[in-house]
């Protein structure tokens, strides 16, 4: 760290001000506005005026809005399942590619594709693949004798279809994160384990796993926070349907805000959503803080 004379001070403060100012103006201020709106009734689509309603919106959300609870339930369920499956598949892939496999770099690049592509593009590509009348996936499954035409019309199956696409899209994230972590592990420990005659499973259980645990937790939190914001896949593949079986929190708020233009209520919903996300993020931020 440089020490503080006046001119240095000017740079220290002058450099950080534009960034902080921008965040204050464009991140903090909008959230304050949204907070004040969350205590108002403002249906912009109708002529009714803006009125202050106190905690009325929040009361409605908690006690009179089954659609909110439904979307919260779906989102939590979705996050739990995809994150766990992505972790296990990613772990398996990373474990395999950590061996002296040929073309490792080829695989590393190929698995980047799904997560680098725009999620909405992916959503539409899958929408076509899964199309009940003409999608290639349906045709393949049917030719194997499995009747799956109902998978986008059956409220019980559709959530799992969305999850499969998410797993397709984000397993690579777990895989690449874990592979990088694997490769940073000290080689000496493995040599020692081999000398001691440890089996493949023992080596993993007693050396790799404990060393990897912190990074696994960080990756899980990152992925969970991101998955919680699920929007594009719902928008592009199911539109929240059938019924409201795949309506994520983001999508519900989007519908309330930008289709019903019930802006006050949408802001109240946003703040509850924000609370939940910040609660999870807090764990992640604490972990990352140690590394600064």
């Amino acid at each position: 760290m440089f020490k503080g004379e006046e001119r240095v001070r000017a740079i220290k403060v002058g450099f950080i001000v534009p960034g902080l100012l921008y965040l204050m103006l464009m991140a903090v201020f909008p959230m304050i506005w949204s907070f004040s709106l969350s205590f108002q009734r403002w249906k912009a689509a109708t002529a009714s005026p803006r009125v202050f309603v106190g905690l009325r919106n929040f009361y409605t959300i908690f006690f009179e809005d089954p659609r909110f609870w439904n979307s919260l339930r779906f989102t939590v369920f979705y996050v739990l399942i995809v994150v766990v499956i992505e972790l296990f598949l990613g772990l398996l892939l990373a474990y395999i590619l950590n061996e002296k496999i040929r073309f490792r770099n080829f695989f590393r690049v190929v698995f980047l594709f799904p997560m680098a592509a725009p999620p909405i593009g992916i959503a539409f590509m899958w929408r076509m693949l899964l199309n009940p009348d003409a999608g290639i996936m349906v045709k393949i499954m049917n030719s194997l004798g499995i009747n799956v035409v109902r998978w986008l019309t059956d409220a019980k199956l559709t959530p799992f279809v969305l999850m499969s696409v998410d797993i397709w899209e984000w397993t690579p994230f777990m895989f690449l994160g874990l592979l990088a972590a694997f490769q940073s592990l000290p080689v000496e420990l493995y040599d020692a384990a081999q000398v001691d005659g440890a089996s493949r499973f023992q080596t993993f259980r007693f050396i790799t796993f404990p060393l990897l645990l912190p990074i696994v937790v960080t990756l899980l939190l990152l992925r969970a926070i991101d998955a919680f914001k699920l929007f594009e896949l719902v928008f592009g593949i199911t539109g929240g349907g059938p019924g409201s079986s795949t309506e994520s929190l983001s999508y519900y708020i989007y519908t309330v805000g930008f289709q019903y233009f019930d802006l006050g209520y949408a802001c109240s919903l946003s703040w509850i959503f924000l609370g939940i996300v910040l609660l999870i993020s807090n764990f992640l931020l604490q972990r990352l803080r140690k590394e600064v």
């Binding site: 709106l37 926070i225 983001s250 708020i253 802006l263 996300v277």
Partner: peptide, 16 residues
């Protein structure tokens, strides 16, 4: 600063 990244975009989209 980083905590700003965690905001769900939809929560910011309405005031925006």
């Amino acid at each position: 600063i980083l905590s700003n990244r965690m905001f769900p975009p939809i929560a910011v989209a309405i005031p925006f």
